[in-house]
């Protein structure tokens, strides 16, 4: 079991609740638009590209590459914040975990890992080197 930074629980709302319910089951959902066919991030009911409300939850691949990152050094333990470009297209703000923080690189392939949160919150999607 990896030793994770204490991560704050997300605060689900009616629009996002299905995502966090699935997360509790270890399932990574993304939101896809049936109007334009594109996947966006973060998930919302109105498509940010074409404004269609014909959007639905679909299974995400949980794979991608690091678009950019930083190692935050002014913390008890340095941690990595990154945008991961999902293989579905959009870039997602996240943390890179289970890695040597000094070996992280732009363009690196990564895969999804669920990280527990405080206060019995749902786990949050993070990534680790593939």
């Amino acid at each position: 079991m990896a030793n994770y930074r204490k991560m704050a629980a997300p605060t689900p709302d009616p629009e996002s609740q299905p995502f966090w319910d699935a997360a509790t089951q270890g399932k990574f959902l993304v939101r896809k638009c049936n109007g334009c066919g594109k996947v966006h991030w973060y998930p919302r009911t109105i498509c940010p590209f074409c404004a269609s409300d014909e959007t639905e939850w679909v299974d995400g691949k949980g794979t991608g590459t690091i678009y950019t990152y930083t190692v935050m050094r002014r913390a008890k333990e340095p941690y990595v914040v990154a945008y991961v470009e999902l293989d579905e297209g959009p870039k997602m703000l996240t943390n890179i975990v289970e890695c040597d923080v000094d070996s992280v690189e732009i363009g690196q392939q990564v895969e999804l890992v669920w990280v527990p949160t405080t206060e019995d919150g749902p786990p949050v999607p993070c990534f680790k080197p593939a």
């Binding site: 935050m72 002014r74 945008y83």
Partner: peptide, 23 residues
Amino acid sequence: PDVQWEFPYSVPTAVAYAIAAKR
């Protein structure tokens, strides 16, 4: 709406500028 997709990842201001600088 974006808070739940950001706050768990701990993105203070310096981090939010550093990720732009890195790219």
